[in-house]
Amino acid sequence: MRMRLKDPLPPTLIGIAVLIGWEVAVRLFEVPHYVLPGPFLIAQALWQNASLLFGSLWITLEITLVALIAAALGGAALAFVMSRARWLERSLLPYAIVAQVTPIVAIAPLIIIWVDSAFAALVLCAWIVAFFPVLANTMTGLKSADPNLRDLFRLYGASRWQTQSWLETPTALPYFFAGLRISGGLALIGAVVAEFVAGTGGTATGLAFRILEAGYRLQIPKLFAALFLLSLTGILIYTILSILSSWALRRWIGAAD
């Protein structure tokens, strides 16, 4: 269950080595700034555009988080509904799969046209990308209860509700969190892709828009700075979800008393 890095030293050293190598290579081969800026220049761009970029980061983060929470709740709720009856699963699952396999880039323009609020449209796009791992994993989890434990519940005359809340739901919880960690990354990707599509709609000022804008103006160091913030956000979301997951599943691992 624990996917956190136990020892941060090796990846940090690798990172520093790569940054130094990068800076040296850029200076040595005199690579133009508009092709590949060095880390110093990127840091400088980040510093100079800090308020602009962090403002945009906040907007992207808002879209991502709202979409992720909706994906967690919606995915789990849908999984519950589908696990109630075979016919419900058979009639609903194909549409969930359609939503999952249709490239978001292709449907985002429609959603942006249909939905008035730009924020709601972007959240919807990110949600469509993010909800499926939660749904699929939770469904698998709800069906994964030990058959002997099922028999035990039956032997003592447990109701459908008792079996679902005391056996199936706790069994599904680790599966749900595994799905949620995947969804965290996907929600960010969905938000960025939707922002790209929304483009210069006027209202969109998220990080993806800053990347587009900097690209058009050939402000490549600023583009890299925005990119760096996006990666950092992705790592942060994954880390927070991992900590949340370990905390929620501490009883599965066996709490030390």
């Binding site: 002997n148 434990l149 032997l155 003592y156 005391w166 706790p170 599965w252």
Partner: peptide, 29 residues
């Protein structure tokens, strides 16, 4: 319910529940 005790080949315990809560299960039901 409770007139028959069943012991399976595996211990068949709830992994998230402690010993007391596992034994409480038939009563809880």
């Amino acid at each position: 319910s409770g007139d028959i005790g069943f012991v399976f080949q595996d211990a068949t315990l709830l992994p998230w529940a402690n010993v007391w809560d596992n034994i409480y299960l038939p009563f809880r039901i």
